[in-house]
Amino acid sequence: MQAMMSNNKPHLSLWRRWNWLVWLIIVAVVYVWAIGGLQFTGLQESAGSVSKSIVHGLVNPDWKYVYNGSGEDLVSLILQTLAIAFLGTIISSLISVPFAFWAARSEKEHYRLRSGSGKVVLTLIRTFPEIVLAIMFIKAVGPGSYAGVLAVSIHSIGMLGKLFSEAIENMDRGAEEAIVSAGGNSPQVFMMATLPTIMPEFISYTLYRFEIAVRSASILGMVGAGGIGTPMIFAIQTRNWPRVGIILLGIVVMVLLIDSLSEQLRKRLI
């Protein structure tokens, strides 16, 4: 019986039969290496009491900070954060369009030198840390939200350019062909067929990127690039936990509102 059953089994090669074990060993080695390499020292003894005061501060936020008319309160700085994200995203969406056409692969291209080089440039921009960009712009224009706007506008090109170029690659060419067959020249094709076809997708991606920009604008202030991040890092450094609590609350509400607003708009677009 036993012999018959094993005869019915399809014959697997040695690799197919044992590859799970190989993967298991690889994963085990990776984890041993990762855990062994880190030093979990430096744990402060005050961790318990600090967390307790953080929780206390989060439960009892500093409501007086919400609005006091000084321009340095929560509402003004949240608005400033949104302004940084908005302006940065708009600027970057405009700069991204030429990058996207550079990086989009077309069927005519043989060696993909053009689109390939465009993709490499976009990858490099995407990988360059946004914080470092912010610090570099602070050196150029001084600390403040202007540096944040510049950092967001440059960093977002990496992702928006990639998303835009993929939209161009996958777009419906029907409208373009129609204009060409009716005798339109290439600026006309671009204005009347290409742009209207991809515009909804471009706007949708820009909105999505705006959601991400709101999050990054709220932390860029930690290095001095304006917005809510600056009072946040001061409050953490001075252990002013009620202040941290109200700022965290403000960021959470802001992000939730922007996300749902942007989701509503994107649903209506596509």
């Binding site: 430096g42 744990l43 967390s51 953490i236 965290l248 960021i251």
Partner: peptide, 13 residues
């Protein structure tokens, strides 16, 4: 933001 808070709790590292 999370990093800033956890550095305050667990110390630098």
């Amino acid at each position: 933001l999370l990093a800033a808070i956890f550095v305050a709790i667990f110390g630098i590292g």
